[in-house]
Nucleic acid binder design. Structure first.
Lengths: 409, 409
DNA sequence: AATTAGTATGTTGGAGCAACAAACTAATTA
DNA sequence: TAATTAGTTTGTTGCTCCAACATACTAATT
């Protein structure tokens, strides 16, 4: 672990090239002069950097702009024909595959349900099939693929592309990187779902140009992507972000978390807690449309169904979300006190009920956070809602390309 | 806020110069060849960097080493005559001033009790008097002062050197930087106590070379210094680290935290909570030496007194510490899950009872943290114990000098 | 004691490459 | 035509790197 901080000229070039590409990516169309202004770099330096990006076909020139005095600027944008990216999200009971361009625009996507108890190899093979389908779709257009990103709930060794442990899937030591790169011949990136979602928001979504924010991924559990000082924070072993397991209650606490402890925050604020709240209400009070909806749709009690009831004005559904929102907000408040972030972004499956959760989260934050800190934070829903991790899978590929322009051939 | 990340050659030199000085500072005596190995820089580059440090008298050569084949190495160390640093800690009911050398060795120190209700101006003037005494002590030796650091519990605008708000002191908007630099003609740095203590551990103490650790400052409240990715994390406005106010209990919770909320973690784990635990025990069970000690010393019930009782084997004292240790450990576990740090460092006034608290903290961490993460962390007491913030005040000066060698005249 | 081999330290001078500065050309508007 | 803004060209400065070299020691042999 040679972590001593030294630098050389190559690093300077790399940094400036990345910053330039990142700006073109997020602010296109943009001119060389604007880039020079924004970066503070010399005009000639910007020209040299842009030249290199042009030569590598990462960006291209589009027509000049009009209006205003002076010579019109030549505008630049990321080359739309640069190539596409494949994103794969492995959820607990589904998997999704998407093809996007370099800007994160979805060109093709497919989602399949999966049985969490199914054999690991089978599930991986199913996923591989869809990935190959995705790759063959645009084949006639001779499209190039820039890489494949894969996200999964659990701890990941991103260097080797190995899933270390996914508690909800009961998977351990799965070498996704090796498997998928052998089968697709693409460069493969593996990342934790919440981390990837945070990168997606930073690159394409609600956290562009934001240096310090937390992505709270709420679903079966609650995970966090910690974006601090302008980059993802992973901790000593890459396990950072397990924000769901802050023990907020000692004894007596009924619910045992899947981590084995009692009193974890996520047991009060995950999707199951909402289902439990609804169940408890239905037992004592029957004036709800939820049983009817369940019968009509021959469905279990799920978050989408509860959301549907809430949309129809069902008080029990709305109140259950409100209660859960307050519990979520309690944890948000604690995190806000710890991190003093610019933004908190709520994403994951639960974010479909954002409309009912967020006001209560904000209310609880107001109540439980320190005023100077709590007033500074913006609490917003994810730009990509339940797709945050899927877009995240794409984003980690795009982010790597931007960060390593200089060294990629 | 032009936070676009660009670089130039001057930055390269600055970075490499700082890294070199930092290594000499923390690993002296050290040779050029060792520096080249550690940094990965070319031997000639290291020679050039060391030359510059030698010219500026920041480091100097000491005799060659002996033994082993090959040419003996010329060893380097920080110039002990470089100058001294003044550290000032403003506590809630005391203030301390220290003079140290550049390595953090204390050369002179003085502590005075203070009345927290006293007039702000009076307290500042008292402190200034002691600072001037400190400066005059070694005057005959013509010692130079490199700067003055001041730490205080509360939120600080470090750029302007202004204390924004210290809840325990009830102070707001105190321009310490201006006041102390006018009176001493020194460069003044103001910092939150926990943050400064973290820097001290990184520079002089238990966290040398550690990239990711948390300093937990436990006393009247619980504050945290978050050292992440190799540097202090301050958040959007510099308020990050308020780890004491994670709401771990909602209702019903008896104790109101000074932040106004109920259920904050620190109300279960600060020094007052221990005193409360002892009181409760004494009410029901009288077989303790604590009342006798209080009478003998004509003292209130204080942490040092309880610690004294524990040292004498008093079960009530020991059990009270154990209980508090478990409550502290609960919060530690949550933080460990969030940050996946290499180390957790316990400091502040409560750390004098480290012997009784740490085993229980470790026990609670084992119980409440996720195994993969909890097993990775080392939980240790501060190298400087209750002086962590005072040494921290010194450390922020030394750290600034190291970080800005290239640009300081 | 003298010689020779081997090894590691540290310096020197040149190459390569980064951003920068200043002077230029280019394209537009008023 | 003058003013303005965009972008390029040419030359400078300053950084790390590299390879060759000088230095200073230890170890083994004569």
């Amino acid at each position: 672990m040679n972590s001593i901080n030294t630098t050389d000229q190559a690093f300077v070039r790399e940094t400036n090239l990345s910053s330039t590409l990142r700006l073109i990516h997020s602010l296109s169309p943009i001119s060389r002069a604007q880039l020079a202004n924004l970066t503070g770099l010399n005009k000639s330096t910007v020209s040299s950097l842009v030249d290199e990006l042009l030569q590598r076909k990462l960006v291209h020139e589009i027509g000049s702009n009009v209006g205003g005095a002076g010579r019109p600027a030549t505008m630049l944008e990321v080359n739309p024909e640069l190539g596409n990216i494949i994103g794969v999200e492995l959820g607990v009971d589904f998997f999704s595959v998407a093809v996007t361009d370099f800007m994160g625009n979805i060109l093709w996507r497919k989602r399949e349900d999966a049985d969490p108890n199914e054999d690991q190899e089978k599930m991986i093979n199913k996923t591989l099939l869809i990935v190959k389908e995705a790759m063959s779709v645009g084949k006639n257009k001779k499209q190039r693929f820039l890489g494949l990103g894969l996200t999964t709930p659990g701890t990941v060794n991103i260097k080797d592309g190995v899933l270390i442990f996914a508690p909800n899937l009961h998977w351990r030591n799965v070498p996704f990187g090796k498997i998928f790169s052998e089968q697709t011949k693409l460069k493969v990136f593996v990342e934790n779902d919440a981390n990837a979602a945070a990168v997606a928001e930073h690159l394409f979504g609600a956290a562009r140009q934001v240096q310090d924010f937390l992505f709270v991924f709420s679903g079966v559990g609650i995970g966090g992507g910690l974006f601090l000082n302008g980059k993802l924070y992973r901790g000593k072993n890459g396990y950072a972000g397990e924000i769901g397991h802050f023990p907020i209650m000692t004894e007596p606490s009924q619910t045992v978390c899947h981590c084995g402890n009692r009193g974890c925050w996520e047991t009060y604020a995950n999707q199951y807690s909402i289902i439990q709240r609804v169940r408890a209400r239905l037992e004592v009070k029957r004036t709800s449309i939820i049983p009817k909806l369940m019968a009509e749709q021959n469905s279990e009690l799920t978050i989408p169904l509860i959301k549907q009831a809430a949309d129809a004005g069902d008080k029990e559904a709305i109140d259950s979300f409100a209660e859960a929102g307050l519990a979520m907000g309690q944890g948000f408040a604690g995190l806000i006190n710890i991190f003093n972030p610019s933004k908190m972004i709520l994403g994951g499956p639960l974010s479909i009920a954002e409309k009912y959760l967020l006001p209560n989260i904000i209310e609880a934050v107001k109540r439980h956070s320190m005023p100077e800190i709590g007033q500074q934070v913006e609490i917003v829903p994810s730009t990509f809602g339940p797709d945050a991790s899927l877009i995240g899978a794409v984003a980690i590929v795009a982010d790597d390309i931007i960060n390593h322009v200089a060294t990629r051939k």
